[in-house]
Design a protein around this nucleic acid. Structure first.
Lengths: 181, 181
DNA sequence: TTGCTCCTCACGTCACGTGAGGTGGC
DNA sequence: TTGCTCCTCACGTCACGTGAGGTGGC
């Protein structure tokens, strides 16, 4: 049996998340102490585990409730399929947005004039966004995969030398090949 | 000069969207009639056009406001870059969710037992979600691209014949090749 | 007694959607 | 007069985050 604080640490959630789950009837402590403190049982913990699993798939809490409260297996299946399907639409939409932005950047602003943004500014920008090197690498990979030409122009606009550029594009392609195989 | 209703039709937005843009100071009618009706000028219309452009890229309204109110060009550029970057992270996240769901469906439920869901049920599900044939085709393409093996198993689970399956997988691959070239 | 954890409201977020209740224009 | 369009609040959405103000436990 656990306090709310212990559960929060175990699952790396915030306190208010658990309070919220309680308020919507998704997960509540099965008992309270004399001072009205929540006491979560092992069963409660298992339910929370389940909840986290489905959250990782981006299932809405209302649907998770349905899954956990139903015994029928095909409730789960159809909800997961629904989500899988939605994800495709979502990804499609985001890709279109990306494409659209690449279009604007290409024929209007960034890539026509040289050195609009310097390498230092760019790196600072990445750090301001809380990105580590791995994330930056992923970003280049993705840029290379989606818009190789723009990637080239972008790197030029940072004022990099041809050698540096081909180095970066080199591993961008290589790594993304590794991943798709 | 236009009424709010005319603008709504022209841009295929909802009335409440324009009211909301007014309330946050993003777009307001430059004049009112005697009866306090909004009168949008040609300038207002142009501003709305701009807004719609950036909305198509998924830029938050607060950032659009910054873009439209600033003269500096690199405000726009850096906001667009920021968004481009975010989109990558987002897409990454959604792909992981998809992968995760595919994992659950694969080794737990749908794909182990045969015919959990019938073809008719599946088609009905698609329609309930308001999908036309094009969207369904895109879905199969994406499924094929991301998880070809699961796609095969899924089609088997619908009870389709081997001929039908290879036909569907056939155009799934072909169309997605067309698009990536 | 001092921190620390816990409690319950209540309000904010983002981009609108959905009424309620009322008035002007053809 | 009848619809139609317009107006201004105000509350709901989704999954929490962030205090405010107060009490129990070691």
């Amino acid at each position: 049996v656990y306090t709310i604080g212990q559960l929060v640490k175990k699952f790396n959630l915030s306190r208010s998340t658990l309070l919220y789950y309680d308020s919507i009837g998704l997960l509540w402590a099965s008992a309270r102490t004399g001072a009205n403190y929540r006491r979560y049982s092992d069963q409660d913990l298992k339910r929370l585990e389940q909840i986290c699993v489905y959250r990782r798939a981006g299932i809405p809490l209302e649907d998770i409730k349905k899954i956990l409260n139903s015994t029928a297996d095909n409730t789960t299946t159809s909800i997961l399929e629904k989500r899988f399907f939605q994800l495709n639409e979502e990804i499609q939409r985001l890709r279109q947005q990306q494409h659209f932005i690449a279009g604007i950047l290409k024929n209007g602003q960034l890539l026509e004039r040289k050195k609009v943004i310097s390498k230092d500014v760019w790196i600072a920008l990445l750090h301001k966004m809380g990105l580590d090197n791995m994330a930056a690498r992923r970003w280049h990979m993705e840029f290379e995969r989606s818009f190789p030409e723009e990637h080239q122009l972008f790197l030029e606009s940072l004022g990099l030398s041809p050698e540096e550029i081909s180095k970066i594009r080199g591993w961008s392609i290589k790594v993304s090949k590794d991943r798709s195989e």
